[in-house]
Design a binder for these strands. Structure first.
Length: 309
DNA sequence: AAGCTTTGCAACCGCGTCTTC
DNA sequence: AGAAGACGCGGTTGCAAAGCT
């Protein structure tokens, strides 16, 4: 009995965990050179390494495999791809990684996780800030001391968008409408503003964002600007969007006079699905913006323009 | 400069699926 | 057919480096 326990203990001790050493990597690489990336369990059974087959496979896939982009940050293009595919596939990291040469599922997963944490932090900060300054909230929002004007945005799938100045927009923070901050008094460069999954592009320039809101609208004809899109979001996205009502969100998300737009919008990586999910796709050679970068990618997942009778 | 917090990443774990016998 | 082992995937954890106060 004691002998058996001792044997079990030995077996347990034999399995090594933690960071890999260069020698171990070398052994693993030699094994793969010889037998190919398979038979991971035999590495241990042959006594080559005191690692589980699982651990060996993971090491190979994530670090030793050729053509990996190790230590290389995700490019803007890769970010867009991840965001786009995550909204399509969900958390299918392995699947998403197949679209990103040199990236592993672990890379994608970590990238997404960091993104989510960043977003959570922003949300948390924005909520605590808002709670301390609720009393100052009013129809004329504060935006680094600048007065801002509400506008409406009209969308035509074939002709793009136009921005329409409007006297007043009343949107409850608990509504599910998509809201985009806007300030006509600030100016940015001539980059267009795009919305991620919708591919919405604002055509009128120059403008930038402030604390008031733009409501995305969709219409089938240029004259049909009054058809307002009701956009159903996931609870998470809805909560985030609701917080855009916070007059101080701008202070949280970024400087009003920044030459960089606030968020990065994923340019569509694939052609849109047959369903009218996206209003207008931004062409590939257009410069990516950084609008809505810190928003959950599923924010526009379920965007579906309101049906016209 | 020191201490604390945040971030990014490598690795582990549990579970489901696939393969082999 | 089904049991056992191997494999693959997604979630989670731990740690070192970077950043901040």
């Amino acid at each position: 009995m004691r002998k058996m326990e001792a044997n079990n203990n030995n077996k347990k001790e034999e399995i090594k965990k933690g960071p890999w050493k260069a020698e171990e990597d070398e052994v693993l690489i030699n094994h793969v050179k010889r037998y190919g990336p398979r038979d991971w369990s035999s590495i241990r059974s042959k006594g080559l390494l005191h690692r589980t087959g699982k651990s060996c496979r993971l090491r190979w896939v994530n670090k030793l495999r050729p053509n990996l982009k190790n230590g290389c940050k995700f490019s803007a293009d890769e970010e867009r791809v991840v965001i786009e595919l995550q909204s399509d596939f969900g958390n299918k990291w392995a699947r998403i990684a197949t679209y990103l040469p040199g990236r592993t599922d672990n890379d994608v997963k970590n990238f997404w996780s960091s993104r989510q944490k960043r977003l959570a932090r922003i949300l948390h900060n924005s909520s605590s800030d808002a709670s301390t300054s609720k009393s100052s909230s009013s129809s004329s929002h504060r935006c680094k001391g600048k007065h801002v004007k509400p506008i409406r945005q009209s969308c035509n799938p074939t002709q793009g968008f136009s921005l329409v100045e409007e006297e007043e927009i009343t949107v409850s923070s608990s509504s599910s409408l998509m809201k985009v901050p806007y300030s006509s008094s600030d100016q940015v460069d001539d980059k267009a503003l795009r919305l991620p999954d919708l591919g919405i592009k604002f055509e009128h320039q120059p403008f930038t964002f402030g604390t008031d809101l733009v409501i995305a609208e969709f219409s089938d004809s240029p004259n049909d600007a009054d058809q307002q899109a009701l956009i159903p979001f996931s609870p998470e996205s809805r909560e985030l969007l609701a917080r855009l009502d916070d007059p101080f969100y701008y202070d949280i998300l970024g400087p009003a006079d920044s030459s960089e737009p606030l968020f990065a919008l994923p340019q569509p990586f694939f052609e849109p699905s047959p369903a009218p999910r996206r209003c207008r796709h931004v062409s590939k050679d257009e410069e990516p913006d950084v609008f809505l970068d810190d928003f959950p990618a599923d924010m526009f997942d379920q965007v579906d323009p309101i049906r016209t009778p």
